[in-house]
């Protein structure tokens, strides 16, 4: 078939459309590659969280940004890669302040789900307890920066009608934060604000007035991560 490529994932022969990313191609073949910053609803994947790191013909690479090619040999579930993913999730827990029991997103949070998936009891790294602020200024949103994992989904996806960025990445290194435009935050339509809250994988971007709206047991990740 034209445009189709054949490759292997952990030894299993797979077929996918040429040009698909490894994450998409793997999912099309029933193989889940763990992801966090990637979302199928957000274009321009950045490869920021690195939790989808796989071996591509022997070299490490992020599966969300690398595309499948004919004859590619991909490894997803090796002990080393799984431990690396676990370490990345742990690093996210220690670099921010994540108190799942008190979080509105608990049960629907992708970071929490990843932690369940990797059975993280306590991170191997010491907690850093950074001082992060809460931004109540937007009309429809509350930004709880302690929970931000800097996946940049909102930065990439949420734009004004004339294409301007609503969210942007400020500072660098451990001081990095994602901030909202002060002016747009006051005037942005409710729908766009809801979209921002929905796209956020964790409990950082919250829609004002929405709290714990689903009982335990019916939330997205209550049964399985």
């Amino acid at each position: 078939m034209p445009g189709q490529v054949t490759f292997t994932i952990d030894g299993k022969e797979c077929k996918a459309q040429e040009g698909q990313t490894i994450v998409e191609a793997a999912r099309a073949n029933g193989i889940y590659v763990p992801t966090l910053c990637y979302s199928k609803y957000v274009e321009n994947p950045v490869g920021a969280c690195r939790s989808c790191t796989v071996k591509i013909n022997g070299n490490n690479g992020a599966a969300c940004i690398n595309r499948v090619q004919e004859g590619m040999n991909i490894q997803v579930y090796t002990r080393q890669l799984e431990d690396m993913r676990k370490a990345i999730i742990e690093a996210l827990f220690v670099e921010g302040n994540h108190f799942c029991p008190a979080c509105e997103k608990s049960g629907d949070c992708e970071l929490q789900a990843a932690a369940y998936r990797y059975r993280i009891m306590a991170p191997r790294f010491p907690y850093r307890f950074p001082s992060r602020h809460i931004d109540f200024s937007p009309k429809h949103l509350v930004l709880e920066h302690s929970r931000c994992i800097l996946c940049q989904r909102c930065v990439r996806k949420i734009r004004t009608e004339d294409g301007k960025k609503v969210f942007a990445y400020h500072h660098r290194g451990a001081k990095g934060t994602v901030e909202i435009d002060p002016e747009i935050a006051r005037t942005m339509p409710e729908e766009l604000a809801r979209e921002a809250a929905d796209i956020c994988p964790v409990g950082c971007i919250n829609f004002k007035g929405k709290g714990f709206d689903r009982p335990i047991g019916t939330r997205k990740y209550d049964k399985e991560p």
């Binding site: 690093a91 670099e95 800097l150 990445y169």
Partner: peptide
């Protein structure tokens, strides 16, 4: 740690650790 751009987790969180 100071010069990391902060985009990816291993470099941003790992170097301070």
């Amino acid at each position: 740690a100071e010069e990391s751009c902060g985009a990816c987790v291993p470099c941003r969180a790992g170097n301070p650790i």
